[in-house]
Design a protein around this nucleic acid. Structure first.
Lengths: 132, 132
DNA sequence: TACTGGATGTTATAACATAACAACATTAGA
DNA sequence: TCTAATGTTGTTATGTTATAACATCCAGTA
């Protein structure tokens, strides 16, 4: 029988991401955990290993445009997480990409699955601020 | 009168990207240029500065999922470049994201402009290879 | 000429990510 | 029970990507 055990650090990381909301870099997470002390996680490797597991489980997503990670807000269905990212202020909104038609716009004969959707740019607020 | 001059290194970089096709990291580009010798570019900073200019001009795009840069293949219209990326083999296909309906799927009150669209995952070929 | 501002070159360092290996735990089978 | 096989964890070191900081050069112009 396969016993399902919690892996080291996964819980800690999930908690930090939940509290913080918004995206955090692996080193942000590490910093938080070290700051608190007590935990098992002390090195980047451990953070990345835990994040990898959590991503596989769909608990966490990577936001490539920010080199950061977010707690899944579970709006999406199945394996189609979508993000709108402001690369200026770092704000991220998650949405369900299942309803997107982007794949149809893509060239024939090249499809990815599972897919992660990311739209990055500068949000309206940051644009206003910049143009002042 | 404002004289438009070519900036240092821009041409070299564009050339390397054109020859190579596919995405290259800033350090790949730097390596190529150093390998050739002769050019003006010798340090990362110079590569990143040139890439920044080229991106502003729409000549080059950044592929966040790969931390890499590609020559624009100019399929897209205006400021809506789209990419389908296999994070396994690094293959990238560019497409016109203007026709995408993703923005409609996004939450209200948060829009980005200009936007870069990226769909990342594992392509069919890589999946087959992995499952063998 | 001397000043200004912008582009460029150069060095150093910050930020992000993984390789490599030792130590320990778990399980299956002798 | 003992042991080999396997996998997880902890730890150190290193690789990769990106930017900060500052010196220098050069064109334009008062």
């Amino acid at each position: 029988m396969q016993i399902v055990r919690a892996h080291s650090g996964d819980g800690e990381i999930l908690k930090v991401l939940s509290i913080h909301k918004g995206p955090m870099s692996a080193y942000d997470i590490l910093g938080e955990l070290r700051h608190k002390g007590a935990g098992a996680i002390k090195a980047p490797t451990q953070v990345y290993r835990a994040l990898e597991r959590l991503m596989k489980d769909g608990e966490v997503h990577r936001v490539a445009a920010l080199n950061a990670f977010v707690r899944c807000s579970c709006i999406h269905s199945g394996s189609a997480a979508g993000f709108i990212v402001c690369t200026d202020c770092g704000t991220v909104k998650e949405f369900d990409a299942k309803v997107a038609t982007l794949p149809r716009a893509a060239p024939k004969g090249f499809a990815v699955e599972p897919a992660n959707y990311e739209i990055s740019g500068t949000c309206q607020d940051c644009q206003k601020r910049a143009s002042k």
